[in-house]
Simulated assay, not measured.
Amino acid sequence: MTSTTVKRLTGRDPATGRSLAVVVEGERIRAITEGPAQETAWLSAGLIDLQVNGFGGLDLNDGALSIDTVRQLVGMLRGKGVTTFLPTLITASEASLIGALQVIAQARRSDPLVAHAIAAVHIEGPHVSPEDGPRGAHPRDQVRPPDLAEFDRWQAACGGLIGMVTLSPHYAEAPAYIRALAARGVHVAIGHTHASAADITAAVDAGARFSTHLGNGISATLPRHPNPLWTQLADDRLTASLIADGHHLPADTFRAMLRAKGLARTVLVSDTAALAGMPPGRYDQPIGGAVELTADGRLGVAGTPFLAGAARCLAQDVALAIDMGGITLAEALQLATANPGRFVGRRGELAVGAAADIVRFHWSPGDRDLSIDSVMVLGQSHD
């Protein structure tokens, strides 16, 4: 009979500043007690990112996905404090989507830590707006209406791993499709859309409960009212994800959206592309072509004012959201832990009985990143 290892982590509570000692037994938090008085680091539940397209040169959407790529991505994100994430596959042919889904499912079967990190897969498309602007970087020739039979083939290919689907609800098929997915326990999100207010309301009535990177994936010019932003901001049934990288949303827009949705109905996502975490410079990408990554984390189409994806990791977005939103460290962490945790089986809580997914980090007011000291996943330490 083997005994279970007991570990102890210390750090300050972001909500109170009080020093904590978290006692971990096996994979779970057994107790939380008072920590040492001189503690300087902070403790948080592991960060949860519901939208990751790639990171550190690893691309989930390049058509050449491998098990090793998925495993490396899990390790890279863990080093940035992300202990749970949704690999996000964008609009592509059915064969390409099924191939990527099969690889992700195989990677999960190959390693329990990979399986834990990847709670589900997010399919962003292919049922997005075909119009320039709201379509974003999604390839026009692969955009198509919702098809429940195709969705069922996706799920069959990956063992039911899809947990979130983003679509534009302007399609006539959208309400029935949304009802069917919601009945299967899949979270349906509205995004990359030019849909009318009536279409959006019909989608929410059918079971849509999420807005994907609200304020992005939308026309540059909109009617004053009604428009897709007001309808989604006003509907309390929708939780909105926002990209707080300082480039996708101006600070005043971010703050206004946060106030409209409230802390409880807002989630931070990174939406990182493969070039996130790479050195600044010009790159040639399969999606986006010639792009430029600047030192401040802006990824844009070279020679244009247009963005080509996101390049700041979620920990950086948490730090930036504090200043952009006029919120506290604890509130910013809520947007990247407990709130997204509701969409992946109620993870993201630093509490007795919760999974021991814990991040220890340093941060001071004005910092533009969380300096990760150590990460624990299911009780296993990763420095």
Rank of each mutant, 00 (worst) to 15 (best):
D284V: 03
I287A: 05
A117F: 14
N61A: 03
R108T: 04
H170F: 06
V291G: 04
V359H: 08
G379L: 09
A202P: 08
P139F: 13
A308M: 01
G303N: 12
A290N: 12
A100D: 12
A208D: 02
W154T: 11
P305F: 08
Y177V: 06
V165K: 14
P175A: 09
A119D: 02
T69I: 10
V143S: 00
R179D: 02
P87D: 10
H116C: 10
H116E: 15
L263V: 06
P340S: 06
V352T: 14
L275F: 00
R108H: 07
V186G: 01
L233I: 01
A180G: 07
L148D: 12
L299Y: 05
R179K: 14
N61Y: 02
G325F: 12
H247W: 03
R153W: 04
L9W: 13
R237K: 00
T201P: 00
M324I: 00
A174G: 03
H116S: 14
G289P: 09
A234T: 05
T33E: 11
S364D: 14
N216M: 08
T337S: 10
D13C: 15
L320C: 03
A21M: 15
A137K: 02
G57A: 06
P175T: 05
T294E: 05
M376C: 10
I322R: 09
M164Y: 01
G300W: 11
G63M: 09
L20I: 03
T201Y: 09
F343A: 11
E131Q: 11
G191V: 06
G341D: 02
L333Y: 01
D284S: 14
A308R: 06
D199W: 09
E349L: 03
A195Q: 01
H192L: 15
R144N: 07
L47N: 14
R237I: 01
E292M: 04
R255C: 05
E94F: 11
G325R: 01
L293I: 12
A157C: 14
L77P: 10
T69D: 15
P340K: 06
V291H: 03
H362S: 09
S196T: 15
F254M: 13
A198I: 01
D13I: 02
G46E: 07
A195E: 07
G81E: 13
R298C: 04
H194Y: 04
G160W: 15
V70D: 06
A92C: 10
I48V: 15
L335S: 07
Q232R: 08
G309S: 12
A117P: 13
M257L: 02
A95L: 05
G207R: 11
R282S: 09
I178F: 14
A157L: 12
H382P: 03
H194V: 07
